[in-house]
């Protein structure tokens, strides 16, 4: 964004962002002590409290399942249980849903194909998949196909941060044509992930190719940025779009009625 545009934006009267009655965050690293997200239960609760105050009603806890963070499923179950109870005890009215963020590598894909469930619980087999660095288009198409033919539905996590998508944004259109859902990170909108990610995120919003705007929060600042991003999207793209990407589509993905 140019300086002029920035100045112009300041002068422009912003439209108040009113959180919808239902607000589903499909991507968060909120589970304590499993990956590079919240490290302690206190940190998790702090994040959840802030999220609740912001107006978020559902959080899908999606710990990494990757080479860097091979979270064991049992560990996740324990953390999930712990957090759910803590939230209940604290009297916060947020619903925590179990999920995963699967790294798209042959090892992890094979595990899904072997019948392990990494989907969002409650959804009809929707799985959050992130593309690792250096992947090529052919393997994305091939790998996604092998997953989908087995009945796994794919939510593509933060494509705007991936080098492959950044150099070939039209790939998103092709993937959406194959029923892949697109999840954009709030922090990309704010600019935390650099100018290119921000540019691509805005372009995807402009093309109306975003299905979910989620926090991908690793800490409290993640939720602060989530709120900021929603305000930015609300200002630039309007109420309908924001409602669609934080309420309508994420709700139907997560199977929330």
């Amino acid at each position: 964004m140019t300086l002029w545009a920035k100045l112009f934006k300041i002068n422009k009267k912003s439209i108040d962002f009113i959180p919808p009655g239902r607000w589903v965050d499909l991507h968060s690293h909120i589970l304590p002590g499993v990956d590079d997200g919240a490290q302690t239960l206190e940190k998790s609760l702090e994040m959840i409290r802030y999220a609740s105050e912001t107006g978020i009603t559902h959080i899908v806890a999606t710990p990494h399942y990757s080479d860097l963070f091979p979270t064991p499923p049992k560990k996740r179950e324990a953390a999930l249980k712990l957090l759910k109870e803590a939230v209940c005890d604290a009297g916060i009215s947020i619903k925590i849903i179990g999920g995963w963020e699967i790294s798209f590598t042959d090892v992890h894909i094979k595990r899904i194909l072997n019948g392990e469930d990494f989907g969002i619980s409650g959804s009809r087999n929707y799985t959050l998949v992130e593309l690792p660095n250096g992947i090529n288009k052919a393997s994305v198409i091939e790998g996604f196909f092998s997953l989908m033919i087995e009945g796994t539905k794919i939510i593509l996590a933060h494509p705007e941060r991936n080098s492959l998508i950044q150099q070939d944004i039209d790939l998103i259109k092709e993937l959406r044509f194959r029923e892949v859902k697109i999840q954009v990170d709030a922090e990309s909108i704010v600019g935390v992930h650099g100018p290119t990610a921000k540019k691509i995120a805005f372009e995807l919003l402009k093309r109306d190719e975003v299905d979910s705007l989620s926090s991908d929060a690793h800490s409290l600042s993640g939720y602060k940025n989530y709120k900021k991003a929603c305000e930015i999207v609300n200002n630039n793209f309007g109420k309908e779009i924001i409602n669609k990407i934080i309420n309508d589509v994420p709700s139907s993905i997560a199977g929330i009625k």
Binding site: D106, G134, I135, N136, A138, S139
Partner: peptide
């Protein structure tokens, strides 16, 4: 450096070889 970015690249190469 099994967690470094270069290792990450080799894993992506592995995925690419196996999938493409």
């Amino acid at each position: 450096q099994p967690k470094g970015t270069i290792a990450e690249n080799y894993r992506a190469i592995r995925t690419n070889i196996l999938f493409s």
